[in-house]
Simulated assay, not measured.
Amino acid sequence: MTATFRPTERLTLPQQWHALDPIWQGNEAAVQQGLPHSQLAPAWQILLLGDGSPTRHLQLLTGEPTEVDVIDMSAIGMDLDHAPTQIQVVPGPRLRRQVWLRTASGQRLAYATSWWEASHVDEYLQNRALPIWASLARLRTELYRDVQGICYGHSLALEQAFGQPGPFWGRHYLFWHHGQPFTLIYEVFSPYLEKYLGAMQPR
């Protein structure tokens, strides 16, 4: 019998990213149909299930510029990184980017992890401190935000980072450009946004 060895890249990968431990998950069909309002209020559905820019939405909600704190830029090669399965359509080798989205005054509003084809990341993120939407808008990049799934779950790390108790709502989506997927993004939003959007679930 011939032994089969897996690459050891996983052992040397940098810090992990903050995935939710799901209570409930919805696929692309749930995204297209929308959720019962008793499960997720309409204003939150616009934010989570719509195909608009979250950084732009956050700026409009808060009246402050949305700024980015980059906390991780790691080469992960061909590793699947425990990411949503759609990572497989993003060409490799890949680079993982993790950020906090916050107001200019410092309030954290969301967490995002994105996976990019490493050879093209500098093309799209010329200023890595800018939100992705701002970077792509400067380049006049035409793209399609394809929401693939939604999740409701817990994360102790995000509770500590947001200063808010869970559970949290998150989603993941692909960006398409010229008919090809070029990045996968996973976002989780802070319950602090109830200040602007109202309760996540009717009480």
Rank of each mutant, 00 (worst) to 15 (best):
M78I: 08
H120Q: 08
W176I: 10
G149Y: 01
V121F: 02
W176Q: 11
P65G: 13
I150H: 15
L60P: 00
Y192P: 00
L61P: 05
V89S: 15
V99M: 02
F182R: 12
Y111M: 00
P54M: 06
E123Y: 09
P54R: 03
D69G: 00
L60A: 15
I132W: 04
A129Y: 01
G149T: 09
Y186F: 01
R56A: 14
Y144I: 12
Q86K: 07
L125A: 10
H57A: 14
G149K: 06
H57V: 13
Q107P: 07
T103C: 06
R94H: 04
L143N: 09
E123F: 09
F162N: 08
L193A: 12
Y111D: 02
S114V: 00
H82P: 02
L80Y: 04
W100I: 01
R128W: 05
L139M: 10
H120N: 06
K195M: 13
S74F: 12
L130E: 03
T85M: 08
G163V: 03
F162P: 00
L184R: 04
L193P: 06
G198E: 12
R138V: 05
M73S: 06
P165M: 11
E142F: 00
W133A: 12
L143K: 12
Q59R: 15
W133D: 12
M200D: 07
S155Q: 07
E117Y: 03
G153H: 15
P84K: 15
L184W: 06
G63Y: 07
H172V: 06
W169K: 14
F189M: 08
V70K: 02
P181V: 15
G77T: 05
A129H: 01
P93G: 14
T85S: 14
G179R: 06
E187I: 00
Q160I: 03
L184I: 11
